[in-house]
Amino acid sequence: MHTQFKTSLTALAAALALAAPGIGHADAAKDLGVAGRALTFLENGPTGKATLGVVFDPSKPASVAEKNAVMAAIGAGYAAGSLTLVGKPIEAGDVAGASGVQALFVTGGVNYAAVGAAAKAKKLIAIGSDPACVRSGGCAMGVSTDPKVDITVNRATAAAVGASFKAAFRMMINEI
């Protein structure tokens, strides 16, 4: 009985290990979906085709992995409600010089303060999957999807980049 239990645990661990890479990609796609749909609730937000700058730190494997997952999810174009997102990888140090993007998706582990400052200067809304980004004010919006969709807007940062959201959306999210 004890052996059977250990065998079951081993099998469960193996199954989880096999599933892990898939989970990583699935979460990136979910985060991207929420971020893209949330953009449709911006007053005077982007419509039709919009380019999302995916900000990453090349020195941090987790950030690079998240960038790769988001870019893979976007593919040739990611439909999020009325928006179709296309992706453009941007190294964290290059945000100040980035052009042709309508919003930023900030991967975990980059220097949020520096990215946030550059985004504010360019009046770009930055969305991050790490709650620390929106809490620190680097991101105007934080999104998470596990265990359920959670959206947090940093009002000061949103105001600094000139982003305001529709009333119904504001009633349903967390604001800090």
């Binding site: 609730f41 969709v149 119904a168």
Partner: peptide, 22 residues
């Protein structure tokens, strides 16, 4: 759109304000 965003039904029947059903 709100249902697709939050992954659950949205309602105003509890308070008059839009809210997630849960």
């Amino acid at each position: 759109s709100l249902q697709e965003l939050f992954g659950e039904a949205v309602t105003t029947s509890a308070t008059g304000s839009p809210q997630r059903s849960t």
